[in-house]
Simulated assay, not measured.
Amino acid sequence: MSKWSLRGLIFSALFAGVMVALSSMKVNLPFSTVPITLQTLAVMLAGSVLGARFGSLAVLIVLGLAAAGFPVMAGRGGVSVLVGPTAGFIWAFPVAAFAIGWCAERWGQGKGSFLKLLAINFVFGALLVYPSGVVWLAHSVDGLDTVSKALVAGFWPFLPGDLTKAVLCASVVSAVYKVYPIERIVGRRERGWLEGDKSSVRS
């Protein structure tokens, strides 16, 4: 299978649609400009199911649509979304999807798949997003002039939900792998190389 397969591109487009749909489900918080959404769940699913390249591509498609003005980020669109208070989180999404996919391709399957995917998604799908998100939030919003205020507005209230999303993603994807392994997307040539299985590499 080629590095950029038609199958992978189609799945990237489909998961971009999933991200748009999930991002529309949001809960606004009275003490923060950052809403609770299912965007991070979509990022976790994209990286875990599609791998590094196609998972990050799915997220980049959504960002491109948002930049073009389509209301694909929690019902909003336009460049203002990509430079607004939540931009630090948004721009970390492709990086998170790539990191999740990179790890999932190498370690996500096999024995203990659920626990491995849970750790991968919580670390890279949640914790990795917060540094840039919280720093940009503090920079963009007046009144967040201390670390504690920035953490309350953009970190602490979201951790339980992100852990729940990681659990849900790991449960779904570990089941998906049993019928649709990740090498169906990333390609058997790459998968065999990653595992060091020379016999699976075909010329």
Rank of each mutant, 00 (worst) to 15 (best):
M1G: 08
L6F: 07
R7C: 06
G8N: 07
I10S: 12
S12W: 09
S12R: 14
L14Y: 11
V20C: 13
A21W: 12
K26W: 12
N28T: 14
L29Y: 10
L29R: 08
T37Q: 05
G47D: 07
G47E: 09
L50V: 13
A52Q: 12
A52I: 14
S56L: 09
L57Q: 10
A58D: 02
V59M: 12
L60M: 11
V62N: 04
A68V: 09
A68R: 02
G69D: 00
F70S: 05
M73Q: 00
A74M: 00
R76V: 05
R76E: 10
R76M: 07
G78M: 10
S80E: 13
V81G: 00
V83P: 05
G84L: 01
G84P: 05
T86R: 06
I90Y: 06
F93D: 05
P94G: 05
A96P: 00
A97Q: 01
F98A: 00
C103Y: 01
W107S: 02
G112K: 04
L115F: 15
K116V: 07
L118W: 04
I120K: 02
G125K: 06
S132L: 10
G133D: 01
G133V: 11
G133L: 10
V135I: 13
V135S: 09
D142K: 12
V147G: 01
F158S: 05
L159K: 03
P160E: 10
P160W: 08
K165R: 12
S171G: 12
V176D: 03
Y177F: 15
P181Q: 08
P181R: 05
P181W: 05
I182M: 09
R184H: 09
I185L: 06
V186K: 05
E190T: 03
G192P: 03
G196T: 10
D197K: 15
K198E: 11
S199D: 14
